[in-house]
C-alpha cells in the first residue's frame, strides 16, 4: 500500500479523524497517516472528508488539531501510488470554557457587608472573622436560640430536630445533607472564627 511504501522512508503517525466535529453524530477513528506541515497523506480507502478535524500528536506534548480543508483522492496509476492528500486549513478556535474567577463582588451580600471595608483595607484576618461572625449572628436571629459558636450550630442544624432545616432533598439524602451542613457550620465556628 501507499503508506507501507512511502511511510517506510517518510514515517507515519497514528492520528484521529473526527468526522462531523462538535455535533451529536461526531465520530472518531484512529488511522495511520503521513503528516507534513501543509498536508497529510492517507490510504486512499480512509474515509476522510472536507471539514473533518484531525488530531495529531504534538511533539511538544498534547495534541494538535487540524482541519481538512481540501481532500484530494488520487486513485490513478499503480495501486501503491493511490492515496488521499489532505491539505490543512486554519486550526479551529479552541473551545475554552469561560473562566469564572472568585471575586469579592460574587460573594454573598452579608459577607460583603460584614467584611468589605476590612478586606479593602487589607485586614484579611479580621475580614474573615467578621464574615463568620455575620453567619453566627444570622443563625442566632433565625433560630431564636440564646447560644453561640459551635453549640449554637449543633442545636440549630441538629439533623434529627433541626431548628433551621437546610436540606433540599428528601429521605436519606436530605438527612445526609443536614448532617453534612451541621458539621460545616460547626467547623466554621470551631476552626475559623
Amino acid at each position: 500500500s501507499f503508506l507501507r511504501t512511502m511511510g517506510r522512508s517518510h514515517g507515519t503517525k497514528q492520528v484521529v479523524i473526527i468526522s462531523k466535529p462538535g455535533t451529536e453524530d461526531e465520530e472518531r477513528r484512529t488511522v495511520e497517516a503521513m503528516i507534513q506541515s501543509e498536508s497529510g497523506f492517507f490510504e486512499v480507502t480512509t474515509p476522510i472528508y472536507e471539514g473533518d478535524h484531525v488530531e495529531i500528536p504534538d511533539p511538544r506534548g498534547g495534541t494538535d488539531v487540524r482541519v481538512a480543508s481540501e481532500v484530494k483522492v488520487n486513485d490513478f496509476g499503480s495501486s501503491t501510488l493511490h492515496h488521499t492528500q489532505v491539505k490543512w486549513g486554519k486550526a479551529p478556535a479552541r473551545r475554552v470554557a469561560p473562566v469564572r474567577r472568585l471575586t469579592f463582588e460574587n460573594l454573598h451580600p452579608d459577607v460583603q457587608k460584614a467584611a468589605g471595608d476590612l478586606f479593602a483595607d487589607g485586614h484579611m484576618g479580621s475580614a474573615v472573622s467578621e464574615a463568620f461572625k455575620s453567619l453566627e449572628v444570622r443563625v442566632r436571629r433565625l433560630s431564636r436560640l440564646d447560644q453561640s459558636g459551635s453549640t449554637l450550630m449543633s442545636t440549630a442544624f441538629n439533623a434529627k430536630s433541626p431548628v433551621i432545616d437546610v436540606a433540599t432533598e428528601d429521605g436519606r439524602s436530605g438527612q445526609d445533607e443536614r448532617e453534612g451542613f451541621m458539621a460545616l457550620f460547626r467547623g466554621a465556628m470551631i476552626g475559623i472564627r
Binding site: H108, V111, F119, G125, R138, F185, A188
Partner: peptide, 26 residues
C-alpha cells in the same frame, strides 16, 4: 494573603447561601 482570605470568605458565603434557602427574609 488576599487569595486565601477570599477562599475563606467564599466558604462563609456558601453557608449564607444555604441559609437563604430557608430564610424568608433573604
Amino acid at each position: 494573603d488576599p487569595q486565601q482570605a477570599l477562599e475563606y470568605l467564599a466558604f462563609a458565603s456558601l453557608l449564607h447561601r444555604r441559609i437563604d434557602l430557608t430564610d424568608p427574609s433573604a
